[in-house]
């Protein structure tokens, strides 16, 4: 009898979370200190209007660090020779990459969420909700929340897609002994260019759905089309990555 896949996934997930313990602590401290610093500056002289920008900068840095961590979570297995352990386990590529995805999504939800939450709280504190709604050109708080939710959903699925492209690039890069880093980078860029083109063509078909919308608002159909497309591309890259890992990766 075989151990359940869910149990093996959970073990890999716990291991991946534990292996990023130090990076996670540094990121948490960085986010808290960053927001505290800018809040202090806004209360002692900086214009309060800078708060949404500084918060966005912190959030962008968090996303960038998480993305870099995506590449390193794969590379680290090779650099530390732990790939020998992983590849000798009775698990396939799908379980391994699902565990790595869950780990990175956990980081995204915790650190990205924390950074967005602190950004919103600081903006509300220094600017007030009415000024924020008016400044961003929305009709009501309800519309602001609605659009914010759509934006967060698109961002979340977009990040999942980038994570899978990063996994795919790293795995293809690992097939080469020489110029592995360069190949990883090139595959990542090329894949994103191709995805960009697919989006441009596919979204043209849905553009009429968007024209009826207001300047700030994304129509529901247009939003669903974007979400659907991103999910399909993410799933394709997930299966491609797992297939390359299972069939082509050697040590």
């Amino acid at each position: 009898m075989k151990i359940a896949n869910g149990s093996m996934l959970s073990t890999l997930y716990k291991k991946d979370i534990m292996s990023m313990k130090l990076e996670n602590i540094i990121m948490l401290v960085g986010i808290l200190l960053g927001h505290l610093y800018f809040a202090y500056k806004a209360s002692t002289g900086w214009h309060p209007g800078t708060i949404p920008f500084t918060s966005s900068t912190i959030f962008s840095i968090v996303l960038f660090v998480i993305l870099l961590g995506t590449f390193s979570s794969i590379r680290r297995e090779w650099n530390n020779n732990t790939i020998y352990l992983i590849m000798s386990l009775p698990v396939g590529g799908k379980t391994i990459f699902l565990s790595k995805l869950l780990t990175i999504l956990t980081q995204l939800v915790v650190f990205g969420g924390l950074s967005v939450l602190l950004g919103i709280l600081s903006s509300l504190h220094f600017l007030g909700s009415d000024l924020l709604v008016e400044g961003l050109g929305f009709i009501s708080k309800y519309q602001l929340i609605q659009e914010l939710l759509k934006f967060v959903t698109l961002l979340f699925i977009g990040v999942i897609q980038i994570i899978f492209v990063a996994f795919f690039s790293s795995i293809v890069g690992s097939l080469f002994k020489r110029f592995s880093g360069f190949i990883t980078f090139a595959i990542f860029v090329i894949s994103n260019v191709i995805i960009g083109r697919i989006y441009t063509e596919m979204l043209k078909l849905f553009m009429h759905l968007h024209i009826e919308s207001t300047r700030q608002s994304i129509s529901s159909e247009f939003f669903l089309a974007q979400v659907g497309l991103m999910l399909v591309i993410s799933i394709i890259f997930f299966f491609l990555t797992s297939a390359v890992y299972d069939k082509k990766v050697e040590l």
Partner: peptide
Amino acid sequence: RNSISYLPEIDYLYSWMTIQQAADFVKSF
């Protein structure tokens, strides 16, 4: 691989783990 126990020449265990953590990790599979 379910019935194979492989010991490579190189150090392949997670260096940050304790022996107990490494054992718990392996036994889950």
